Computed example of a mutant assay.
Amino acid sequence: MTEIPIRCSAVSVVLLRKADIGNEVLLLRRNHTLIGEWCQIAGSIENGEKAWEAALREVREETGLICKRLYSADICEQFYEADRDAIAMLPVFVGFVDSHATVVINHEHSEFRWVSFAAALEMVPFAGQRHVLKHVETEFVRREPVRHLLIDRASPAS
């Protein structure tokens, strides 16, 4: 019997800001992998890095933004990678940024958009992304996030 390996070497971040119409989600149009698709922030965990540290770094590298608050989303994004014959499992984080912060995308993306959850659900290509977005809207927008999921950068275990 052959088993399919489960790889957990990357993170996913749903970035939110408050707007007049409610909370908006940042989506980025991919330039390299998944060319042309709209996605949330994602990236690899570097050696010696904690997953939440990778989330903050990826936000900064891909958008130039700094999270005011970062939460564990209490969910993982998962999908099958045929080229690796493996299941990828990414811990999801939710970051909140200032409403008027300026987005500066890096070379990995061709454009960005702040959109409503309804629009984001129409734009992302994968069912797993839609599942994550629905979870984030329910647990971080429609209700107050559970304080135990807040990542205290000085003491993430608290």
Rank of each mutant, 00 (worst) to 15 (best):
Q78M: 10
Y71F: 15
V141C: 12
I41Y: 02
V94Y: 06
A73C: 05
V132C: 01
K134C: 11
S72I: 05
A86E: 15
D20S: 10
D74Y: 08
N106C: 06
H107S: 15
E61P: 04
T2N: 14
V92W: 01
V146M: 05
L133A: 06
I4D: 06
S44H: 10
A10M: 04
A119Q: 07
L34K: 07
R142I: 13
G95L: 09
V59Q: 03
C8E: 11
L15F: 06
S12N: 10
I6K: 08
L26S: 00
N31K: 14
D20P: 02
A51G: 00
V13P: 01
V124R: 01
N23I: 01
V124W: 05
H100E: 15
E139M: 04
L56M: 13
L70W: 03
S72W: 13
W52K: 02
E108I: 05
T102R: 13
L27Y: 00
A55V: 03
E61F: 05
H32C: 08
S155E: 08
I75K: 03
C39I: 08
C8R: 08
P5Y: 04
E122D: 08
K134P: 03
D83S: 15
C39W: 09
Q40T: 11
A101T: 00
R17N: 05
K68F: 04
F96M: 07
L90K: 07
F126V: 00
V59K: 01
R143S: 14
R113P: 00
I4W: 06
R30D: 03
R29C: 03
L121N: 09
L133G: 02
E3Q: 10
L56A: 13
I45T: 09
I4M: 08
G95V: 12
A86C: 15
Q40A: 11
T102K: 14
R113N: 00
R153N: 04
E137Y: 09
Y80G: 01
T33R: 13
R29I: 02
H32L: 13
E144S: 10
R147E: 14
E49G: 03
K134A: 05
E53G: 13
